[in-house]
Design a protein around this nucleic acid. Structure first.
Lengths: 168, 168
DNA sequence: TAAGATTGACTCTTCAATCTTC
DNA sequence: GAAGATTGAAGAGTCAATCTTA
């Protein structure tokens, strides 16, 4: 997305405004929240654009990779939502699309009549590998050094843990 | 959102899987991208929940604050989109809702017949102040120290600049 | 009763097409 | 023709309600 860049950083400018208006104490946190929002928008836009030709989105790609890394190439939908930290409705939606694309099959759970498994098809396996090549290029293009990535990850991990996302 | 936390970090687990499957070189970047996605989800969920009683969302709140910080309390919709880095359609949508809520008025641009201004109403000014109290609490609850926030901001700024978001 | 999954209503986002005015 | 704004369609997310099975 070659949207023309601004001649200044709008988030830095917003932080300045917060300070000017007497909220110096929360200005840095505000800037961080806004930066996270914007970074997410950038990442998602890039990756979704890359994956579009494969009939995938980042959300569906994550689901595909989770299945690929699973022992049997299949998982109950509930387990998927738990791992991906999304609502059941989102899992249903993503699996619907993946099934339409022929990447996944719904299979009844062998022992629990309430549950459904999403199972990778051979096409799903192939496409996951193909998509990973594309996505890896996008990851590499982030432009941070190994150590910076580690610091960034650790800080965000602290944020997530603080929000009760998992037991640290 | 008191969703029960997992007993492990699903993103750290995903990174481990990437390493196991031979993508050690991109695993840290993958973990960062996923962490940003998740942090955004957390922030947005919290803030939107806080603002819901005021009939605001984070997107609308940002627009309100941009107007509040502007010289005249009004800006052309195009300028708003540029500053907030969202599409024109998103601005139209947000202004529609804010207008429904009585926080903003559409006013014809005095010199350019094509353009429209969004102008704060007195209620909009009051509500913006009220919302800021709530949002500031959420910001303060991030749980990072001043210096950590600075480091986080700088790293994300580098990511944004690398994506061509603005001229560094 | 509770768990697993689905559905429908709603919000926010993007994109492409359109309309008016410069 | 190009800029500013709006519209409609499509995707993904939330929540609340529902249906089936344990």
């Amino acid at each position: 997305v070659p949207r023309r860049g601004l001649s200044f950083d709008p988030i830095a400018e917003a932080e300045r405004q917060w300070r000017v208006h007497g909220w110096e104490d929360v200005a840095p946190a505000m800037a961080v929240v806004t930066s996270v929002m914007r970074a997410q928008q950038i990442f998602l836009g890039r990756i979704d654009a890359l994956l579009r030709p494969l009939n995938l989105t980042f959300a569906r790609y994550e689901l595909l990779m989770l299945l690929l890394f699973s022992r049997r190439g299949s998982l109950p939908l509930g387990k998927i939502g738990e791992r991906l930290q999304v609502q059941p409705a989102s899992v249903t939606n993503a699996v619907d699309r993946l099934e339409d694309g022929g990447f996944v099959r719904r299979v009844p759970h062998p022992t629990d009549g309430r549950a459904t498994l999403a199972e990778l098809t051979p096409a799903g396996r192939r496409t996951a590998a193909q998509a990973t090549k594309l996505v890896n290029d996008a990851f590499a293009a982030i432009g941070l050094q190994e150590q910076e990535l580690t610091v960034l990850f650790d800080l965000l991990r602290k944020v997530r843990a603080g929000a009760g996302d998992f037991q640290p």
